[in-house]
Structures are given as structure tokens and as C-alpha cells.
Simulated assay, not measured.
Amino acid sequence: MLTTVDFFDLADFRHQAVFDQGPVWNALKGLKSYMDSLNYPAWNREIPLDQPLPATLVIIDGKIIPAKGLTLDLGDATKGKMTISKDGQILAGASVLMAGAILSGEKISLGRGVFVEAGALIKSPAVIDDYTEIRQGAYLRGYCLIGKRCVVGHVTEVKHSIFLNDAKAGHFAYLGDSILGNHVNLGAGTKLANLRFTGGEVPVKTPNGTMATGLRKFGAIMADNVQTGCNSVTNPGALLGKRSMLLPNTTSPSGYHPPNSIIKP
């Protein structure tokens, strides 16, 4: 119980290797070493770092080109509706960095069809997979591993966390040392607290007793298809099973909540 297969379907997740056969939170323990071992593209050495981009840029086939002279149809990237074309020819898989976005550090990788809006700040290392949107005011603080078709939304802060495919934190969220499963959706204002007031290791309470994690900072793990309502909060070390719901204006207790749980005020 509480292994990766109890929480996630990894069949289409490009970074399965970050998970092991032990407790699901081991992925957080290994996240730094995994991301440090990856190869990152060279294109971000060609752009100004640690300052707002002065002009919109397009990334295609590992190369940076100016957006000037291109036609940008900035539809919903997560649904494949963002198209970039030149002289009427679509540049398949092109990603867009809007003027005003800030990249800090060279270990940043963007997949195909990624859209980074003006005002987003991405700190190295970060991996952002295909057709994901990083929206205005988003703050990725480093060691962020983001899957396909995800959303890191307006004024959302993410630190040392993993998004599986189709996970969305669209508005005013905080995620520290956490994992979102496939098709997880966080309501506006959701906060995943990751540090105990009293300090020390964050344990996980289960029906069979308390399990040690070895983690001083540990937010939440949300299994596939979990949903949270607006202004909800999880206490450190909260594990929500598949298809669970955390209702609006509700604080989830620490510990394991089985699949299909409905956590009420």
C-alpha cells in the first residue's frame, strides 16, 4: 500500500524513472538527483537570462527564432490549438516564450507546443513537457517536473514538485514538495502546505499505523483524478487516493485518505 501504482498510471508519463518500487513519496526524495542527471537543450544559452525577455521568441526543432514575421494563433495549448505559422506554413510543435517572461538558469527544457506567457518566472532546473501552459504570474522555483498538457496558472507558485499529465493548478495555488497525478485539478486558491509548525519530519498516518517518510518538507500527494475546491488547504503529509474530492473552504488532515474520499469541512 502507498506505492506508486496505488496512486498513478505512469503508462504515458515520460519521466517514469523518477519513481521507484517503494513508498510513493520516494519520488520527492529522488527528484533533485533525477533532474540534475538530465540533458538540457542549448537554446536557452542564446537568450537573456534573469531578466524579462525583450521580444517574443519561438522554439522550433531546438532552435530559437524571433516571432516577428510569424503568425501566432495563441489558442489553448493544452488542447493543441496554439498554432505558429510562417508564410502560411504551420511550424508543427513550435513553442512560444512571450516577451516579458523570465528564465533563470540554463537547465530549462520545454517540450513541443509549450506556451509561456508574459510575466511567468521559471527558475532552473525545470522540465516542461508537451502542450503545457505556464501562465502570466506563474512562479516555478526550481526542480519542477511538469508533464504533458498541464497548466501552471496565474499567480501559482510551484517548488520541488511533480505534475503528471493533464494536471492543472490554474489560479492562485501553492505547491511545495508535492505530486499531482494525471487529470488532477486544483480549484482556485488551493494551498498544499509542506512544513510543520513544530518542525521535524513529516510522518504519514495510515489505518495500519504511522509511517516515517524521512522528509522535513512534504506537501501533498494527489492520486489520479483528484479534485479540490476553491480555497482548500492540505496539511503536510496529506495523501489523497484516486478520484477523491477536497471540498471548497476545507482543510484536509494529514495522512492517507483512501480512493473516492470526500473530505468535507
Rank of each mutant, 00 (worst) to 15 (best):
A101G: 06
G62H: 08
P66L: 08
G119T: 00
D61T: 01
K32Y: 08
L70N: 01
L91V: 01
E106V: 13
Q89C: 01
V58E: 05
I102E: 12
L31M: 08
T83Y: 01
M82R: 08
T78M: 14
K68C: 08
D61C: 03
E117H: 11
T56I: 11
A120L: 01
K63T: 13
A118C: 08
G62W: 07
V114C: 12
A101L: 00
E106I: 12
M98T: 07
F115M: 14
Q51L: 02
Y40R: 03
A94R: 07
G80F: 10
D87R: 05
L103M: 10
K81C: 07
G30S: 14
K86A: 02
K81R: 15
D20F: 12
P66H: 08
F19A: 10
M98Y: 07
K81E: 15
V96M: 10
G69T: 04
W25S: 00
M82D: 07
N26V: 00
I65L: 14
A42Y: 08
A27I: 07
E106R: 11
Y40S: 01
P48F: 04
L91A: 00
I47A: 04
W43L: 04
D20M: 12
D50V: 00
L110Q: 09
L72S: 02
V24G: 05
I47C: 05
G100H: 04
N39D: 15
I60C: 11
G22V: 05
K86G: 01
K63A: 14
R45Q: 14
V58S: 08
M82G: 05
G119R: 01
G62K: 09
W43R: 05
I60S: 14
G30D: 14
K86M: 02
T71F: 01
I90F: 01
G105Q: 05
L74V: 09
I64Q: 07
Q51K: 11
R112S: 14
M35I: 13
G62F: 06
S37K: 12
L70A: 02
A27H: 06
P41G: 03
V58L: 07
G30T: 15
L53Q: 09
L31C: 06
G93L: 07
G88Q: 02
G75N: 08
V114M: 10
Q21Y: 00
V58P: 08
A118I: 00
T56M: 03
Y34P: 02
A42I: 13
S33L: 12
G69M: 06
P52L: 02
V58R: 11
L91Q: 01
D73V: 10
V58F: 09
Y40C: 05
I60L: 13
L103C: 03
D50E: 10
P52R: 04
P23D: 07
A67K: 04
L70K: 02
G111T: 05
A55W: 02
D73G: 00
N44W: 03
A99P: 05
L110T: 03
P52Y: 02
T78A: 13
P41Y: 11
R112N: 13
G80D: 12
I84L: 05
Q21S: 15
V114K: 10
Y40F: 12
L97I: 05
G80T: 07
L57T: 03
G105T: 11
A67Y: 03
G22Q: 13
N44Y: 03
G119A: 00
Y34H: 06
G80H: 11
G93H: 10
E117R: 15
M82N: 06
L74F: 01
F115R: 14
Q89E: 11
I59H: 10
D87C: 01
R112C: 09
G30A: 13
K29I: 11
D50K: 06
D87L: 06
